[in-house]
Design a protein around this nucleic acid. Sequence first.
DNA 1: CCTCACCCTGTAAGATTTTACAGCTACCTG
DNA 2: CAGGTAGCTGTAAAATCTTACAGGGTGAGG
Lengths: 249, 249
Amino acid sequence: MTPGKNCHELVDLLIKAKTVEEIHSLCADFCEYSGFDRFLYGARIPTSFVKPYFIFISGYPNEWRTRYTVKGYMAVDPTVSHCATHLTPISWDQVGPQENSDEQIRMFMGEAREFGLNSGVSFPIHSAQGEFAMLNLASTKSHAQAKPTIQEALPYASLFSAYLHEAVRRVFEHQVLSLSRVHLTDREKQCLLWSAEGKTTWETSHILGVSERTVVFHLQNAAGKLKVVKRQQAVARAVSLGLISPQLE
Amino acid sequence: MTPGKNCHELVDLLIKAKTVEEIHSLCADFCEYSGFDRFLYGARIPTSFVKPYFIFISGYPNEWRTRYTVKGYMAVDPTVSHCATHLTPISWDQVGPQENSDEQIRMFMGEAREFGLNSGVSFPIHSAQGEFAMLNLASTKSHAQAKPTIQEALPYASLFSAYLHEAVRRVFEHQVLSLSRVHLTDREKQCLLWSAEGKTTWETSHILGVSERTVVFHLQNAAGKLKVVKRQQAVARAVSLGLISPQLE
DNA sequence: CCTCACCCTGTAAGATTTTACAGCTACCTG
DNA sequence: CAGGTAGCTGTAAAATCTTACAGGGTGAGG
C-alpha cells in the first residue's frame, strides 16, 4: 500500500539480482507492496523476426497462462497491442468494457476475470536492443475499487519496470541475448549503415574511399558475426538489435 | 518539491496538449514542482539512418545549447551514451566525476557546470517506432545537495517522460513523423518480414504460395510507400519504424 | 617474435534483384 | 457504375549481390 517506501529498495535489489528466482521474488514483493495480487512480466527477444524468443516471469495462475498460450490470446489481448505501440501504461478498464470493443476482446477479458484478473494495469517496455516487454499488475478487485491503487502505483511501477527489464537482460545475457552483444568493427557498422540507407556496394565503396571488394568483405564479416548469410538479413538484424544508429551531425 | 501531487495533473494535461508551447510549459511546471531548475527534452527521429531529424524542447541556457551543438558534444556526453543503450535513468554524479572517466568527459561536465547545470538526471525514452529521446532535469545545486530531489523525482519523471514523448509524437505527427504512419498491407508486411529473414524472392513466393513476380510486386509497393528504392532499404526502414515485428507463432 | 584483430584488395562465375514493359480479378464505396 | 484499394501474374535485359578462389598490410600485446 505504500509503494514509495519500498520502490527504491526493490530497485537496488534488482540491480544486484543474479537469478530469475531473485527477480521473481522482487516482482512479487513489488506487487504486494503496491497493493496488487498478481504480476506477469513477459519479454519478446528478437532472436528472429518470424520466430522470436519469449521470456516470462509469472505470478499468474498457470491455468490461465496455458489457456492464453493455447488459444493464441496474444493476438487478441488489447493490452498487448497497446503496449506494442505505446510507451504509456494502460489500465485495463480503458480497453475491456468499452462499448466499441469487439466481441472477441470482451470474451477475452471475461475469461481473465474467471482467474481473478479483474482489474489491472500494463506497462510497456521498449529497449534500445529491440526487445519488447510488458509488466502486468493485476488485482482481484473491481476496476472501480482498484483505481486508487493503480493511480498511486503508476510512477513507481514505471520506474520499476525499467530496472526490471535491465535485470532480466543481465540474467539472460549469456543465453538468448548473446546476439545483442555482438561486436561489430567501425568499418562493418559503416558498411551496414550505408547499405541500410540503400547504397550499392559501388556507392558505399566511394563514400568510404575503399574498393568494392573491401565493402563486400566487411559486409560478409558483419553477416558472419550476426550469424546470417544475406546482406539484407544482416542489415535487418543490425537495425533490430540497435547496432547501427545515427548520432552526430 | 511535491512531485506526486502534480504528476497526475500534468500527465492529464500532456495528453491533451496540442502545441509545442503547451508541452514546453508543462515540462517547465514539472521541472519546478520536482525541485529542478532546468530541463531539456531531445528526440532523435529515424527519418534516415545517416541523417536523422532532431526535436528539442529546451529549458536550457541557449548559449550552452549552441556550444553543445557546435562542439559536437552529443558524441561526448556520457548521459547520451548511457540513455542510448539503457532504459534506466542516470544521475549525473554517476558519470562525470568518476575517477575512470576520461579527460574529455570531465571537461565536458565542467563546462556544463559553468552554465548552472551542476547536477541532474537523464531519462531514456525508446519508442516502438524507433525514436530515441531523453528527458534531462538539471539543478544548480551540488550533487550532494540535489540527491534527495533526484531520488524523489525518479518515479514521477519516469512516468512523465513516457507521456511527454507521446505528446511530442502527437504534435509532430504531421511533420517529421509521417513515415511511421505509413500503412502497409498484410502481404507487403509478410514479404518484408521474410525478406528481413533472409529469404530470396523465390523462397518467399513458395512460403506465401504466390508467384515470384507477386512477391517482387509487393516489395516494390512497400518500398514506394516507405519512399525508398531498394529492397534492403525498405527492410531496414520497416524494421526501424517497427512496422514489421513478430507476435504470434 | 608470434598471434590476433582489424583493415584492405583482386578475379570470376552464378544467383538474385531491379526495372520496364503489360494485363488480370475481386471487393467495397460513393 | 465509376473509382479506389488490394491482390495477383508474365517476360526480359541490366544491375547488383553472393560465393569461392587467393593475397596483402598495420598495430597492440603476450
